[in-house]
Every structure is written in C-alpha cells, then in structure tokens.
C-alpha cells in the first residue's frame, strides 16, 4: 500500500543535499520502526520515491515522498511514530493513503509555489516590484538555460504560472516536473539581466511552499491525490 508524505525542510537542513535527505529518511524509518517495504536481493533497500529534489540553499514547507508500505497504523499514529524520532527541521506535516493504481509523486508533478523574501542585510531595491511587473507583462520572455548537454532556449513567460507581490515577499508559481521545469533562481537571474542590474544569488531566501499535479487544466496539491487513513 502506498502512502504519500508531506514534509518540511527548514533551517540548517537547507544545506543538506538530496542524497543525504534520502539517507536521513532511511534511518528515520528504521528508528520509527514503521513497516516499510524492502526490495529483494542481496542488499535490500526501502521502497521510497521522492517527488523532486530541492535545490541546495532553499527551504521548503511542501516536500513530498511516497512510501511503499506493508502495513500502516492510522495517520495520526503513523505521523507521530516518525516525528517522535525526527528532527524538527524535517518534520512530517501530513500524509495520505493513495489508491493502488496511483501514479507516483514524481510523475504527477506539474507546478510548485515559491515565496521569495529579501535576506537580512539585503534591501529591496527601488523600483523592484515595478520592474518585475514590467518584466512579466511582456509577450514572451526568452532565456537561455544551461542543460546537462548544452544550452537550450526557453520562454519563461510560458513557465511562470503566477507571480504576486505579497506582504512577506514575492510569490511565484512555476512549472515543475519532467515536461516543463523552471527554477525560481533562474527566473530572478533572468529578470535582473533584463533589468540591467547585478544579480546577487544571496539576495533572496527562497522557500518552496507547495507541489502540485495537474488534472484537466487545474492544479491539485499532491496531498489531495489520496485519502485519510
């Protein structure tokens, strides 16, 4: 049976890379004593699959991982078993029971929410929001993206789903996943280039707030693909 878990990655955990997060979960699951399924073979490993890695330096309050379980207690007990032996920065926030034929989080992934706040010691530059609005109002935003094999031209306009000024900072909803993928750092880098100012990668603290799949043109939070248990 498949369980989807929503967890956070806060504070100093932003310096821990994706591989180490996976290893941390393996140990967490052992400490908690949950009945996760193991693969067969000489070196059995836990059946776990993460929605998508989070960039180093970013925090998140909406990370997802799917577990393949042999058995589970009720949701409250399950979350407590894990959180009792967990670090606060990686606390599990929610979980749901997926239908047997559910696609995994990684293949569902369509979009992500981000909130960007100015880092301590970095002031909002004059005209920042106005310039950003102007940047978004263009018909297309061509940008050159570095890929594993070389360079690729993309239109950021197609990848930025929403952008809003909010009391806490700048909110961005971006394409995420295997079909179309856009990172908030890349949006800001491109924006500063267009604006004609130097981009300081440490200007913003970036938090990923939520991950979504897409059904009939509407976004659906990954946690909403299953039911309570």
């Amino acid at each position: 049976m498949k369980i989807r878990i929503k967890f956070q990655k806060q504070g100093n955990l932003k310096f821990i890379g994706h591989l180490d997060v996976m290893r941390t979960f393996q140990k967490l699951n052992r400490r908690a004593g949950i009945d996760i399924r193991y693969s067969g073979g000489f070196s059995p490993h836990q059946q776990m699959s993460f929605a998508t890695p989070l960039g180093l330096g970013l925090t998140s309050s909406g990370e997802y991982v799917d577990f393949d379980m042999n058995s589970v207690p009720d949701k409250k007990t399950f979350l407590q078993m894990l959180n009792d032996v967990n670090v606060e920065e990686m606390r599990l926030l929610d979980a749901c029971l997926l239908p047997d034929d559910a696609k995994n989080a990684m293949s569902l992934l369509a979009a992500a929410d981000y909130t960007l706040t100015f880092r301590e010691g970095h002031k909002i530059e004059e005209g920042f929001y106005e310039a950003f609005e102007a940047f978004l109002s263009k018909d297309s935003i061509p940008a050159v993206k570095k890929t594993k094999t070389g360079f690729r031209e993309v239109d950021l306009k197609q990848q930025i789903r929403r952008a809003e000024r909010r009391p806490e900072g700048l909110f961005l909803q971006l394409d995420t996943g295997s079909v179309s993928n856009c990172k908030p750092e890349f949006v800001m880098e491109t924006f500063y280039e267009t604006w004609g100012k130097d981009y300081d990668p440490f200007m913003f603290m970036i938090n990923r707030d939520e991950l979504y799949g897409e059904e009939e043109g509407k976004l659906k939070k990954l946690i909403e693909y299953g039911s309570d248990f």
Binding site: G11, N12, L13, F15, I16, D20, L56, G57, V87, E89, R119, F202
Partner: peptide
C-alpha cells in the same frame, strides 16, 4: 549563508 554555500559539505560545520 554565503560562506556555508561556498564551502564543500557545509554540514560539517552545523552541529545539527
């Protein structure tokens, strides 16, 4: 954060 992101394996220095 600037220094921690610039060095190799920042987890060495966090004590968490």
């Amino acid at each position: 954060d600037e220094i921690l992101m610039a060095v190799e394996k920042p987890a060495r220095y966090l004590g968490n």
